[in-house]
């Protein structure tokens, strides 16, 4: 199998790997780089568990080829905390009991981050729209929506 070199930043750190041509970003992150915060829930583009942010845009790593991310800046939930300091979304999901099994959580947090990065004070409707491509089977979504709204409020307080 042909291997191709790929370089990108992952959560601000330079990464350079040889990946199989045609391999997905999901596989590259999980199997080559070892960032297993990115989850394979369907590999069809229908669950959002593998969502990452590429150059500021939310994407499904299962449908993105790794070699098309050469030079990109990639963000994952695995790199969101600074040491023990959690990102406001992580704090809100934790304190708001917005995780149960936790499998959808990293993708959900990425979807929420992509929203808040562009729209720091979203309405409930904005939040619903932003997570609509992410499946959660445990929570019934309401705690997740509340956690994202709480994180947005916390952001606005800290910005004030």
């Amino acid at each position: 199998m042909k291997k191709v070199p790929v370089q990108f930043t992952l959560n601000g750190e330079d990464k350079a790997e040889f990946v199989e041509s045609g391999a997905t970003l999901l596989k590259a992150l999980r199997e080559k780089i070892g960032d297993t915060s990115v989850k394979a829930g369907c590999q069809q583009g229908t669950c959002g568990s593998c969502a990452v942010i590429v150059d500021g845009e939310l994407r499904l790593s299962c449908l993105t080829l790794a070699e098309r991310c050469d030079g990109a800046a990639i963000e994952t939930t695995g790199g969101l905390a600074h040491g023990e300091v959690l990102h406001p979304l992580q704090r809100a999901f934790n304190e708001g009991f917005a995780t149960q099994c936790g499998f959808c959580t990293p993708g959900m947090i990425m979807a929420a981050k992509a929203l808040l990065d562009g729209n720091p004070q979203p309405s409930r409707e904005d939040v619903v729209e932003a997570i609509s491509g992410n499946i959660c089977r445990c929570t019934g979504y309401e705690p997740i929506i509340q956690a994202i709204l709480a994180a947005a409020r916390a952001n606005s307080l800290s910005a004030a």
Partner: peptide, 18 residues
Amino acid sequence: GRDFNEYLMPGPGDLAQT
């Protein structure tokens, strides 16, 4: 249904006031 598009479950915009 073979995926989460075809296997239907209420989305975050379908929530009842609970």
